[in-house]
């Protein structure tokens, strides 16, 4: 699978500009940015701090809106959507993995995995079953009723990945997903992402660590809110796993 470039687009940025107001200055975090992430692709987004990669991730994740331009997720234009519709879109089409895991402390593992489903207008009936399957997949079926504080960092991040998969998202967004982990655990998490890629999922991983970026299929480098370079890899899935 995963024939590059011939795929239909999952996330499409069309002339996106995002301005921030910092006091009297206007900071242009994304500058007339156009790019397309195709289905089944695994991208690493790299760049120095202030290059606009976080803003890009926020726009891709529909938690931030472009000042100008349009962004389409799975063919749906987000420009015309109101806050509720955008939230619904997040709960159905997107999966988030954060640097600091961001699990909800009051909830146990199973409940944490199911959170995105809670917020869907018409939640699936098999939500709990899905969550159990995913927990088993990330190796946490023994800890379903544990609270996040009772888990190690690697375990928490695996819960977060299970949570990012529970709604069968079109796009998985990972923000420095290995940043808080020791190198061994980081490798485990990266291996998990490789697996997801191998299954044909679309992943955008933001990172500033070159060796993490190297593992991805393609690398997008940003500078000053613009594309600096695009490096398309042709590695097979087997190569990525090695």
């Amino acid at each position: 699978m995963a024939e590059p470039s011939s795929n239909q687009p999952v996330a499409e940025l069309i002339g996106v500009t995002r301005n921030y107001r910092m006091g009297t200055n206007v900071v242009r975090a994304l500058d007339n940015f156009s790019f397309t992430f195709g289905r089944g692709e695994y991208w690493a987004v790299m760049g120095s701090s202030g290059s606009g990669k976080s803003t890009l991730l926020n726009v891709l994740g529909c938690i931030d809106r472009p000042t100008e331009g349009d962004y389409k997720v799975d063919g749906i234009s987000t420009n015309s959507l109101d806050d509720d519709a955008l939230s619904e879109l997040r709960s159905r089409k997107l999966g988030f993995v954060f640097q600091s895991y961001n699990l909800i402390p009051q909830l146990n593992v199973l409940e944490n995995i199911m959170v995105p489903l809670f917020y869907q207008d018409d939640p699936p009936a098999d939500g709990e079953e899905r969550a159990r399957t995913l927990a088993a997949r990330v190796g946490l079926s023994e800890r379903l009723d544990h609270r996040p504080t009772e888990l190690s960092g690697g375990q928490q991040q695996r819960v977060a990945i299970a949570r990012a998969l529970v709604n069968h998202p079109a796009l998985i967004l990972a923000d420095e997903a290995t940043g808080n982990l020791d190198s061994q655990t980081a490798l485990e998490i990266l291996a998990l992402l490789d697996e997801l890629h191998a299954e044909g999922r679309t992943i955008v991983l933001v990172t500033h660590e070159p060796d993490v970026g190297e593992r991805a299929q393609h690398v997008l480098r940003l500078k000053d809110g613009r594309i600096e370079s695009v490096k398309r890899g042709q590695r097979s899935m087997a190569g990525a796993r090695a």
Partner: peptide, 14 residues
């Protein structure tokens, strides 16, 4: 927590 929930799809009414 509010940010996480919003990112995961919580609407304002939630």
């Amino acid at each position: 927590e509010i940010g996480i929930r919003r990112a995961l799809g919580a609407k304002r009414r939630h």
